[in-house]
Design a protein around this nucleic acid. Structure first.
Ligand SMILES: [Mn+2]
Ligand SMILES: [Mn+2]
Ligand SMILES: [Zn+2]
Ligand SMILES: [Zn+2]
Lengths: 149, 149
DNA sequence: ATCTTATTTTGAATGAATCAAAATTGCTGG
DNA sequence: CCAGCAATTTTGATTCATTCAAAATAAGAT
């Protein structure tokens, strides 16, 4: 089985139930969308799902991503800039992100270590270190061609 | 001269003028407060400065930190959790942060390299890398003693 | 099929940040 | 020192993502 291969709706349903959550159309659709469109906002999920689930509320999408994040099924990231939090199904591999400072585009960066914490600070200030969040910032090819505003 | 020694108000005034900004009481007071109280929010700055500058508006503090950030005199960080953005006068040394996941406390972590980017990603996705933001997460001594909620 | 409880919906509120126009202040050059 | 301009602050309002709470609904167990 390929790592991070998108699951079908039946597999997501099962995943929800074994986590102790009910399998609902909104949750399954959100998970399917997230697994094929990583780094999506609650708003974007809602817009995308409106076609197949016209009754699904933005508020519900917020509930869904919050619940799924709390149960470790998805992961929340908080990029700089506008648009709010983003979510992804790729969890537990401690991967990092690379964000374009011009257009905000986000790419995945594999972690050389693969488990948290993949870096250790010089001094810990008496804290027990759990993980190291790394976000690379740069300028993507597209934006580098384009003249600066 | 010690690194990051807090400047007095005259020195901050000069710093503002050589950057091409006007020296105002609000800006100088904000800089003095930030240099002695790093990682402070706009709200916290406003509350602290209300004693000596009762006329200073929260809106003005927002303008101030935005202008100073844009001119590189202070640096903005966006920690997870509630409270909004935080600011600090310690710029240009590429230092990192360590945040307690329970209480939100933030500590500075010196960068072994000292200049950006201090890490290089495995693959760059065609992006020109400018910097690597590293935030360590952990549990501080205080919170580790306390029983979990 | 019914019941229980989790989930979604509905409706409202929060908090941080930003926008725009008017009032004020810092600075410059006379 | 003073006038005048432009930068800054104030005033007042608005945006946006997110959260809260109560009522309605739907999933899954018996
Ligand atoms: Mn990712
Ligand atoms: Mn710092
Ligand atoms: Zn870009
Ligand atoms: Zn703590």
């Amino acid at each position: 089985m390929l790592p991070f291969a998108p699951l079908d709706s039946a597999a997501w349903s099962e995943r929800l139930r074994e986590t102790g959550l009910k399998s609902t159309s909104g949750r399954v659709a959100a998970l399917e969308h997230l697994s094929t469109h990583p780094h999506t906002t609650a708003n974007e999920i809602h817009t995308a799902l409106t076609k197949e689930l016209p009754a699904l509320t933005l508020q519900s999408v917020h509930n869904i991503v919050q619940d799924l994040t709390a149960h470790g099924i998805i992961r929340r990231i908080d990029p700089l800039g506008p648009g709010g939090a983003r979510y992804e199904t790729r969890t537990d591999d401690n991967h990092h992100h690379l964000q374009c400072v011009r257009c905000g585009r986000i790419e995945d960066i594999d972690c050389a270590v693969g488990a948290a914490p993949c870096l250790t600070p010089h001094s810990t200030h008496g804290m027990r270190i759990l993980q190291a969040d790394v976000t690379f910032r740069g300028v993507c090819g597209e934006c580098d061609k384009r003249p600066q505003p």
